[in-house]
Computed example of a mutant assay.
Amino acid sequence: MKQTDYSYTRSLMVFALFLLWSFATANAQQGSLFETGNELYNQGEYQAAIDTYKEILAAGEHSPEVYFNMGNAYYKMDRIAPSILYYEKALFLDPDDEDVKVNLAYARNMTIDDIDALPKTGFAKLTRGLLGAFTYSVWSYLAIVGMLLFVLFFIGYYFADREGRKRLLFAISGGWVFLSLLCLLFAFQQRKWERNYDPAIVFASETTVKSEPNLGSDEIFRLHEGTKVFILDAMHDWKKIRLADGKEGWLPAEELQRIKDF
């Protein structure tokens, strides 16, 4: 019996070591590909660098650094739509990266369409800024922490022997309930926003936005390469899109590349 337990433990250790070795090897390979891509970029071999970065993406590794470097390589090749697409991907993963923001602004200056975003009210800005402070998962964790603190303070209130202390602990526990429910509401709202937020980049050099999802419908307006749109709906091979200025219409799906495709 002891020999069997020993063999089982040894097998688990071997399996754990194998997993650690596999992860370390995979990370080393991805790091090597990233360095190779950077070397090719520095040598001016931009397409080769892009192909190398794509190998990293094909392995399921998505990082703002890889997307940023791909955006730079496409920008050097004067391919505006792909450069904007990959800058946007990098910014989606790391919204506070100033280098990405600067390079994205340069790339956008080379687009034809000049679209002014609809002005937001002060309340809308405040709400969006507050919800966007954390992801829905972080808001959910905060709600759980708030509920745990409520339980702890309520237990303290239940066992407190002084009237003043009981009132204080009861008030604090009630405050944690309120904050927990508020965080839970924020989590649901942020999750809803993240699901509905589906930006894309126009890849056609010029395209006609239609009033309905078919070629025979009326033309509403035209868009050009590199313009950012937001996908609202899909029907067959068409996507309903909205611009930052509020205009809506239908485009062939093949003329768009989604930013959140990972």
Rank of each mutant, 00 (worst) to 15 (best):
D5F: 10
S7V: 10
Y8M: 12
T9P: 00
S11D: 11
F15R: 10
L17K: 06
F18N: 05
L19C: 12
S22H: 08
F23E: 09
F23C: 08
F23M: 07
F23A: 07
A24F: 11
Q30G: 01
N38S: 11
L40W: 01
Y41W: 00
N42C: 03
G44T: 11
A48S: 14
A48F: 02
E55K: 15
L57N: 06
A58T: 14
A58S: 15
G60Y: 02
S63Y: 03
P64I: 05
Y67N: 07
Y67C: 02
F68G: 02
F68P: 04
G71S: 11
G71N: 08
N72Q: 09
A73Y: 05
K76C: 02
D78F: 04
I80Q: 01
A81L: 10
A81D: 10
P82C: 12
A90S: 12
L91T: 05
D99Q: 15
V102L: 02
N103P: 10
L104T: 12
A105Y: 01
A105Q: 09
M110C: 07
T111Y: 03
T111R: 06
T111K: 03
T111E: 07
L118G: 03
P119H: 07
K120C: 03
K120F: 05
K120T: 11
G122A: 12
G122Q: 13
A124K: 14
K125W: 08
G129R: 10
L130H: 10
L130Y: 14
W139R: 00
W139H: 07
Y141F: 03
L142G: 04
L149E: 14
L149H: 10
F150N: 09
L152R: 04
F153K: 01
I155Y: 15
Y157K: 10
R162D: 15
R162V: 09
K166S: 12
L169P: 09
L169M: 14
I172D: 04
S173E: 06
G175V: 08
W176C: 07
V177S: 04
F178G: 03
Q190W: 00
R191Y: 10
W193A: 09
R195G: 00
I201D: 01
F203G: 04
S205E: 15
K210T: 00
P213T: 03
N214Q: 05
L215S: 14
E225C: 09
G226N: 06
T227L: 04
V229R: 01
D233C: 05
D233K: 13
A234V: 01
M235C: 02
D237G: 03
W238C: 00
I241N: 01
D245A: 09
D245L: 08
D245S: 14
L251R: 02
E255A: 11
K260I: 15
F262W: 13
